[in-house]
Design a binder for these strands. Structure first.
Lengths: 350, 350
DNA sequence: GTGAAAGCGCTAACAC
DNA sequence: GTGTTAGCGCTTTCAC
């Protein structure tokens, strides 16, 4: 039984890419050589108009589309970068992700991304899967605190930029917001408005930004010569139940706080809910800006950072590396900005 | 001049994947055949413990990681799917995207995604780039209204599911929310609370959901026997400037509306701002739920759809196709839910 | 148990 | 202008 070029031989998997035509098929149909088709497909010079026409006709008749997997294998560059972060749907990370995508697009690269769900194992699994795909570079918001697993990859040439949180146990490019200064400014703002007992509700202290923000809180209190009671500190998971419980605890008793500082956007939103149920005003400053913060009553005073700017900076640094810039790892810190809207300017209620 | 296996010959690009070791290198170092390394890397049976140990040692010494580009080329499946939508950072699409990612992960696939920015040309460019990468399947939120460009791809076996909006001029799987019924319910709700002059501010009418929601508005008005003045309809771009101008126009004059229906989340947010500046109460119902809607005053009544559910349904349908289910294209419609919070229950102000 | 050889679809190099 | 050849790094087949 005779076999045509495309018939399923014993060596061919049952359905390869749905049995799509290849350049060879296009060449055969157009009666030209393989390389001529390649030239046409890639818009290279040196093909006569007539030949080009025949090849084009053949391409559309067969529904040919170049297989970039093969191209990638041959060229050694995938024109894609990987992005791994905690949660693509988080209102803080979504704009960051979008900014990375825009920069990638400007450089002709696609974006492969994944959410680590704050799970170090999942982060590593995703990152290594991306390395196996030979992405040209990686932008990572760490969930893990040990990135030594990346050492062979970086050594092998995978450009890597960390953003929002520093990597653990390795030296690499890094783009951060100034969490320490931001938190210090926010807490100083509350102190300037007369508060002396201020609660801090933040994220788990293992997370770098959470740690820095707590440090900023302590610095502001200390600079003002104010004591900090143990009960005013509540680092931990940012689920509403925990945040609510800690807030309610701080808001009662003789040592009760007159103001709260929220360590991130999710904490802030939960605190807004808790405070809305209260019969007395409690001042609030939150880290991270969020939509509609200005329409709540009182409008919420925040320490704003620009996630899109962080993403853009990280991606641009990455592509600079891919273009061959080979300085030692760079650490960029972006300033934060206090936006006073009302909740942070409330006076103490006693 | 003698050449080792990995030295840069004239035929080798200067830096291929940063010159990473291949299975061949691992095999040479371990003193085994190529296929044996392949067996170890893929956890296949039939390798003696001793050989396996030697290969493993060789793998970690060289920092070998399997090149999935080559694997993909050979196997014909990329274990990746593409997602194209309007804007990854939009609070409606971000959870949809995350849901698609989770389903992909459950099926061992990576997600490559891109934002079309509501630009048909960019949608097509992205989709075709994903096809060239031979993604196994596509989830698309259309920006374009003509998807005939996808016909050869679908014919060639790229599974495709549309979500949120139907494809143009082709028949394909589709997951929608019930925009028509949702809008009709929302407007009926306003009518039930005494309103007779209701404005509709929506998205551009070329967008399917916008069209359906306008149809729902008309149906509700018509069912109640209410006339619709031309000035009460304002489809168009959803930028705050346009929405504000149209709202302000509707809110003055003798025929002024006492209630507004917002066609999507962005319009709703802008209208909340406009109405907050007003000296009289105007009722508002918005399509799409949004965070903090319950904390505004008045809290905002919405027609809620579940974007994560839409994404999950679309991705699950896609993987069912990839597993070989071959029914005719399916169209799934998810119901919406009215959440009364206050703004939609305000009585007419005159 | 192990390995040699073929080939996935493309691009690079070089000959014609 | 155009075609031929080699080979990217892997998996498949089949022989040992």
């Amino acid at each position: 039984m005779p076999e045509t070029a495309r018939s399923a031989s014993a060596r061919t998997p049952e359905r390869r890419y749905g049995n799509r035509p290849t350049m060879k098929d296009v060449a055969a149909r157009a009666g030209v050589g393989l390389k001529t088709v390649s030239r046409v497909v890639n818009g290279e010079a040196g093909v006569s108009p007539d030949t080009e026409r025949r090849v084009q006709e053949s391409i559309s008749a067969l529904g040919f589309r170049r297989n970039d997997s093969a191209r990638i294998l041959r060229k050694g560059r995938t024109a894609s970068i990987g992005l791994v972060l905690e949660d693509l749907a988080d209102p803080f990370y979504a704009p960051l992700s979008r900014a990375v995508e825009e920069v990638a697009r400007a450089h002709g690269a696609l974006l492969i991304n994944g959410s680590s769900a704050e799970d170090p194992g999942r982060e590593q699994e995703l990152v290594l899967a991306l390395c196996a795909r030979r992405v040209d570079g990686l932008v990572i918001v760490p969930a893990s605190d040990d990135h030594r697993y990346l050492e062979p990859e970086i050594a092998a040439g995978v450009a890597t930029v960390f953003v929002d949180r520093p990597p653990g146990h390795i030296d690499a490019d890094l783009v951060l917001a100034d969490s320490f200064a931001g938190a210090r400014d926010g807490v100083s703002h509350l102190i300037a408005h007369g508060h002396r007992r201020i609660g801090f509700i933040g994220d788990r202290p293992g997370i770098h930004t959470a740690h820095e923000r707590l440090r900023g809180y302590r610095a502001a209190m200390s600079e003002a010569g104010l004591p900090v009671a143990e009960g005013w500190l509540a680092p931990g998971a940012t689920d509403p139940g925990r945040v609510r419980a800690d807030a309610e605890r701080m808001l009662e008793g003789p040592e009760r706080v007159t103001a709260l500082f929220a360590g991130n956007n999710r904490v802030t939103v939960t605190l807004v809910r808790v405070l809305a149920e209260l019969d007395r005003p409690v001042a609030l400053v939150g880290f991270d800006d969020f939509e509609l913060a200005d329409l709540l009553s009182p409008a919420v005073t925040v320490i704003a950072q620009d996630p899109a700017q962080l993403g853009r900076a990280a991606a641009e640094l990455l592509f600079r590396r891919l273009e061959g810039v080979d300085d030692p790892p760079r650490r960029m810190t972006h300033p934060t900005r206090l936006i006073a809207r009302g909740s942070g300017e409330l006076p103490p209620s006693d």
